[in-house]
Nucleic acid binder design. Structure first.
Length: 937
DNA sequence: CTATGTAAACAAC
DNA sequence: GTTGTTTACATAG
C-alpha cells in the first residue's frame, strides 16, 4: 500500500516524518566539493502540512480510488498474462473478454499486445465448471464488482455474478421441497426486495428511458455477435478444409459427405455420427505404424474407458452446439492457450502442407504434446548452420534417489535438440600461426539448448537449470592445463514426469547481453526450454612484448585494477615460456596463470619462481624476448597501462607499436600500453632503486600519461598488501558471492530460465557508470548518454521501470569518482549542458561503492580529543586533518593529493586500494631474481 | 557490519 | 517533466 493511503487510514495527512527516524541534520550532510554550498542542499522541511483540512477528505477519496484503480488495472493485466501463458482461471477469461468487448476501453493503456482469445461469449466460461470452481469464480467476480468503477464494466460483472449464482443453483440437487427455484427470479427478488417505493419508481424511470433509447439493451450483444460471426466463419472454413483433406486422404477427391448433413446430427446421437463415416478399404499404408508400441511420451497419459471417452465427446459436442462455435480448450484442464499452439503448429504445417490444408493439423491436432512434437521436428528440420554442430554431450546425472513422483508418473528423459556453435578465435597467437586457408582448431563459442517438455505436469512452472562445477572449482577459477578449457555440467531440472538431464559444456563466462548478434535467449514456451548463449569473446587487451629484457627480470604490470576486476572471465597471462619472471604477485591476480607458448608444447606457468628458459631454446624468432599477453573479455582501453621491470638496468623507451597487436578479433585498434627496454642503454636516472619513477608519456599514447612506477615503503605491511587493497582481491568473475564450490549440486547456483538476467545484472551501478564514462571521449557524458549506454550495454538498462535511472543519478551524485561539470554548448552561449566526468583518480583506479552512511556515523562517534584515525572509505581519497573540509569525507583537494604523506603512521588507511594515485603500486616482494648478471642476447 | 540497490522526498530548472 | 541531492531503508552475505 502506498504511504499516502496508509497514512490516510491511520487518520493522518500525507506521510509525516517518523519521529524515530534519524533526524535531519544540516551539518551532517554529505556533499561533494564541486558543488557550491547552499545550492542543491536541502533544508529540513518545517512547513506546515500543505493540505487544508477541508481538502483532506477529497484527497483521501482520490487516493483510495487511485489505488483501487491501480489494483484493478493490475488484476486485468495479470489476467491477460495468465491467458496468454495458458494459466488462465475462469475469472481471467471473464476479465479478458470484458477488455475485448469494452467499447471504450483506454486504448492508450493497452501497451501490451492484445491477447488472442477465441472465446467471446462470457457465458461459455461457466460451461462445465464444478460447484467448487463456480464458488471460487464467484469470489473473484465479487472482487471485480467491488473494484470496477466504470458503470458499464460494473454492470458486466454484476451480470456475471448473476449467471454464476444461477449456475450454482442449477448444479445443486433439488431441495427437499422438490421445487426448482428460479434463480433469476430470486435475484430479481433480491434486487428489488429491499428497495423502497421511491427507489423502485426511479428504477422504473431508468428502465423506460433505456427502452426508449436506441442503445442496444444488451450493450455487449452487438460486439459479441460480430465477433462470433467471424469466429464461426473461420471455423467453418477450417472445417471444410479438414473435410476436403480427409476426403482426399480416404477416398480420393470425390465428395462423399453431403453438405450440411452434420448439422442435423443430434448431439446425443453419437452412434449415428459414427455410422455416417465414409467407408473405405483399410490398407496398411493408412497406418504405417500400428501404434502397438506406446510412444514414450504417451506412457503417462491418462487411460480413459471408451464409454467415458464417448461421453466426453458428447458433452463437448453439446457445448459446441449450444455456443455455436468451437470453444477453445479453456478454461479448466487444458492450460495451454490453444490459439498460440494452433498458430505455432500451423506454421509447421504450412511449410509442407498444400495450401488450403494448413488448418488441418490445427483442428485435429490441438493436443499440446502434438504441437511440441511438431516444434521439435521443426527444430530438427532446421538443422545446423555452418558453424554449428549437433550437441549431444549428455552426461549421466547423479541422482541420489528416484524422484518422489516416480510411482505416480513414469520418469523419462526429455527429448532435446541442441547445437554447439564453433568458431575460430583469431587472437594474436592464432593470427601468427594460422591463416584462413589453414585455420586454427575451432573452439566452442556457445550453445543452443532446446529441450522439450511437452507433458510437464505442472506447466506453469518453468524448468530450471544450474551449473555444476566439479572438484571444488569455483566460478572463474581454472584448473585446466594451459591450452585446454575447463568444463562444467549444466543440468536441467523440470519436474514430473521428467528426469533431470545434464550436459558437459565449456565453462567460460556467458555473454548475457541481449545484443542482436550475441543471441542470448532463455525461455520456456510451448513446452520448450530454450537456452541459447554464447561466451564472451576474449579480447586481448594488452600485449606487452619486451624484447631485449633480461630473462630474470621481474615485470610488474601497472593498470587499472578496478578494470581488471571487471575483466573477469579467463584472465590469464599467455606468456612466452621464456618470460619466466612476470610477477604475478604484483598484479594481484588470484586466477591461476597459464602459459601460452609459441611452440606447440604447452608449458605450464608455475609462478614467479619458475626457472627461466634459456633463450637458446627458442626456435622461432617471432617473440624473441619476453612477451606477456593479458586477455580479458572487456573492451576497456586502458586495461593495462604499463609494465615496470625490476632489477635490471634499463632505459624506458616508447614501446614499439608493431609489437603490440591485438584486440582479439584481428582489428588493429590497439593502444600502445607498454614500453620496452633497451638493455644496451643503462640510464641510472631511472634506476629501479629510485623512490618513485615517473615519466612523461609520448603524445600518441594517452594511456601512458599516468604510468608510474615506484617502490612502496608501506606495501610490506601484510594487511595492506593483501586485504585492504581493492586490487589485491580481484574477483575473477563478478559473481554473486554465492559459493558454488562443492562437488555436488547443493550449493550450485540455481537459476530459472527467468532469473538469469538478474544473475548477470549484478555488476554495481558505480562500476557500470565507470565503464560507461571510460568508453566516452574525455571520460565525459551527459546523463542521457549514460542512460543510453546502459540501455545498450546492460541488463539493468533494458528494464522498463525507471528505477535504474534513479539509481544512476543516485550513484552519480553520491560517488566522488564522478564529477559534474558545466559545459557551454558551442554556438549558443546561453545553453549549458551538464556533463559527468570521471575524476582523475577514478580514471586510474576505478570506482568503489556509492552510499556510505557509515562514514558519517563513525566520524561523529569518534571520541573527542583523541586523534581520530581518518575514515577509511573506498570513496575517500586521502584527506588531511589540516584540510579545511576534512569533515567532509568526499572532499579532497586535487593539488595536494600528489604530496600525501604515505610514510605517516596512518597514512595508508586512507587509500583502501582506491586512491592509489602516483604512489607506490607495487612492491617487488620476490626480490631480485638475477641469474648471473647480464642478459644473454 | 559492509556493499549495494531502491524508493522517494525535495529542490531547482 | 528532468536532473541532482540526499535520506531512508532493504537485502545479501
Amino acid at each position: 500500500m502506498d504511504p499516502g493511503r496508509k497514512a490516510m487510514i491511520a487518520g493522518r495527512g500525507p506521510p509525516a516524518r517518523d519521529i524515530t527516524a534519524p533526524r535531519h541534520d544540516p551539518n551532517s550532510r554529505i556533499s561533494k566539493p564541486t558543488r557550491p554550498s547552499g545550492s542543491g542542499s536541502r533544508t529540513p522541511d518545517f512547513r506546515p502540512p500543505k493540505n487544508a483540512p477541508t481538502l483532506e477528505d477529497e484527497q483521501s477519496r482520490q487516493w483510495v480510488s487511485q489505488e483501487d484503480n491501480f489494483v484493478l488495472k493490475q488484476a486485468k493485466k495479470k489476467a491477460d498474462i495468465r491467458v496468454r501463458e495458458g494459466r488462465a482461471k475462469p475469472i481471467d477469461w471473464l476479465a479478458v473478454i470484458l477488455r475485448i468487448i469494452d467499447p471504450d476501453r483506454d486504448l492508450l493503456d493497452d501497451d501490451e499486445e492484445e491477447v488472442q482469445v477465441d472465446v467471446v461469449d462470457p457465458e461459455g466460461v461457466f460451461e462445465g465448471l464444478s460447484d467448487v470452481q463456480l464458488a471460487e469464480l464467484e469470489i473473484d467476480i465479487n472482487s471485480y464488482v467491488a473494484l470496477e468503477t466504470k458503470k458499464r464494466n460494473h454492470d458486466y460483472w454484476k451480470t456475471m455474478q448473476i449467471i454464476c449464482t444461477d449456475r450454482r443453483q442449477k448444479l445443486k440437487p433439488l431441495g427437499p421441497e422438490g421445487r426448482a427455484v428460479s434463480s433469476v427470479a430470486s435475484d430479481v427478488d433480491k434486487l428489488l426486495g429491499p428497495k423502497t417505493y421511491e427507489q423502485l419508481e426511479a428504477l422504473e424511470k431508468q428502465i423506460r428511458a433505456k427502452l426508449r433509447s436506441n442503445e442496444p439493451i444488451d450493450v455487449y450483444q452487438s460486439v459479441l455477435d460480430s465477433r462470433l460471426d467471424t469466429l464461426r466463419k473461420q471455423q467453418e472454413e477450417d472445417a471444410s478444409g479438414v473435410r476436403a483433406k480427409l476426403q482426399e486422404m480416404l477416398t480420393g477427391p470425390t465428395s462423399v459427405v453431403e453438405e450440411g448433413s452434420e448439422n442435423q446430427v443430434e448431439a446425443q446421437n453419437v452412434s449415428q455420427l459414427v455410422r455416417r463415416q465414409p467407408n473405405f478399404q483399410y490398407s496398411s499404408t493408412h497406418d504405417p505404424e500400428p501404434l502397438l508400441k506406446l510412444h514414450n511420451e504417451d506412457k503417462a497419459v491418462e487411460v480413459v474407458d471408451e464409454s467415458v471417452f464417448l461421453q466426453k465427446i458428447v458433452a463437448e459436442r453439446r457445448r459446441v452446439l449450444k455456443l455455436g462455435y468451437i470453444p477453445s480448450r479453456q478454461p479448466t484442464t487444458e492450460k495451454l492457450s490453444s490459439s498460440s499452439t494452433m498458430r505455432a503448429s500451423g506454421a509447421v504445417a504450412s511449410s509442407s502442407a498444400p495450401p488450403g490444408t494448413q488448418r488441418f493439423s490445427t483442428i485435429v491436432n490441438e493436443d499440446f504434446s502434438q504441437a511440441t512434437k511438431a516444434l521439435y521436428e521443426r527444430e530438427v528440420a532446421r538443422g545446423v548452420n555452418e558453424d554449428e554442430e549437433i550437441f549431444t554431450g549428455e552426461e549421466s546425472v547423479t541422482t541420489t534417489a528416484k524422484p518422489q513422483w516416480a510411482d505416480k508418473y513414469r520418469p523419462r528423459k526429455p527429448r532435446y535438440f541442441n547445437r554447439v556453435q564453433m568458431g575460430y578465435e583469431w587472437n594474436k597467437y592464432n593470427q601468427t600461426h594460422y591463416d584462413h586457408d589453414n585455420p586454427p582448431p575451432k573452439v566452442v563459442q556457445g550453445y543452443k539448448f532446446n529441450i522439450f517438455y511437452p507433458d510437464l505436469i505442472d506447466k506453469s512452472k518453468a524448468p530450471t537449470f544450474k551449473i555444476i562445477r566439479e572438484h571444488g572449482r569455483k566460478r572463474g577459477e581454472s584448473f585446466a592445463p594451459a591450452g585446454e578449457e575447463d568444463t562444467c555440467l549444466i543440468r536441467f531440472i523440470a519436474g514430473p514426469p521428467y528426469e533431470d538431464i545434464a550436459f558437459r559444456i565449456v565453462d567460460k563466462e556467458w555473454d548475457y547481453s541481449a545484443k542482436r548478434d550475441r543471441g542470448f535467449r532463455s525461455s520456456f514456451d510451448k513446452g520448450i526450454l530454450q537456452l541459447h548463449f554464447q561466451y564472451k569473446k576474449a579480447f586481448t587487451r594488452a600485449v606487452c612484448c619486451t624484447n631485449f629484457l633480461h630473462p630474470c627480470a621481474t615485470v610488474n604490470f601497472i593498470g587499472s585494477f578496478d578494470t581488471l576486476h571487471q575483466a573477469q572471465a579467463d584472465q590469464h597471462f599467455m606468456i612466452n615460456p621464456t618470460a619466466a619472471n612476470i610477477s604475478r604477485n604484483n598484479f594481484g591476480l588470484t586466477t591461476p596463470m597459464s602459459a601460452m607458448p609459441q611452440s606447440s608444447t604447452p608449458t605450464a606457468w608455475n609462478g614467479p619462481n619458475q626457472t627461466p628458459l634459456n633463450f637458446d631454446d627458442q626456435t622461432t624468432s617471432d617473440y624473441y624476448g619476453y612477451s606477456a599477453n593479458i586477455t580479458s573479455n572487456e573492451q576497456v582501453n586502458n586495461f593495462l597501462r604499463g609494465m615496470s621491470f625490476s632489477d635490471v638496468p634499463r632505459t624506458w623507451t616508447p614501446y614499439d607499436p608493431r609489437m603490440l597487436v591485438d584486440n582479439g578479433i584481428g582489428a588493429g585498434s590497439f593502444e600502445p600500453s607498454a614500453y620496452m627496454i633497451d638493455p644496451n642503454k643503462n640510464d641510472m636516472q631511472t634506476s629501479v632503486d629510485g623512490p618513485d619513477l615517473q615519466f612523461d608519456a609520448p603524445e600518441n599514447s594517452r594511456g601512458f600519461s599516468r604510468l608510474s612506477i615506484s617502490r612502496s615503503p608501506k606495501m610490506e605491511c601484510d594487511a595492506l598488501a593483501s586485504d585492504t587493497l581493492a586490487f589485491s582481491k580481484p574477483a575473477p568473475f563478478r559473481l554473486p558471492s554465492t559459493d558454488d564450490s562443492d562437488d555436488g549440486d547443493r550449493s550450485s547456483r540455481e537459476m530459472t530460465a527467468m532469473d538469469i538476467d538478474d544473475h548477470c545484472a549484478d555488476e554495481p551501478y558505480a562500476k557500470l557508470i565507470y565503464r560507461a564514462l571510460m568508453s566516452a571521449p574525455n571520460h565525459s557524458m551527459v546523463l542521457q548518454e549514460i542512460y543510453q549506454w546502459f540501455r545498450e550495454n546492460t541488463v539493468k538498462g533494458s528494464s522498463d521501470t525507471k528505477g535504474w535511472m534513479n539509481s544512476i543519478r543516485h550513484n552519480l551524485s553520491m560517488n566522488a569518482a564522478f564529477k559534474k561539470t558545466e559545459r557551454k554548448i558551442a554556438g549558443d552561449e546561453s545553453k549549458k549542458s551538464t556533463e559527468w566526468v570521471l575524476e582523475e583518480f577514478a580514471i586510474k583506479d576505478g570506482v568503489q561503492s556509492t552510499t556510505r552512511h557509515d562514514i558519517l556515523r563513525s566520524q561523529f562517534s569518534q571520541p573527542q580529543g583523541q586523534i581520530a584515525q581518518r575514515q577509511s572509505s573506498p570513496l575517500t581519497p586521502p584527506s588531511h586533518e589540516s584540510m579545511p573540509s576534512s569533515s567532509n569525507p568526499y572532499f579532497f583537494p586535487k593539488v595536494e593529493q600528489l604530496e600525501l604523506p604515505y610514510g605517516g603512521p596512518c597514512g595508508l588507511e586512507d587509500v583502501q586500494g582506491v586512491y592509489i594515485d602516483d604512489s607506490p603500486l607495487f612492491t617487488d616482494n620476490h626480490g631480485a631474481q638475477f641469474c648471473d648478471g647480464l642478459p644473454r642476447f
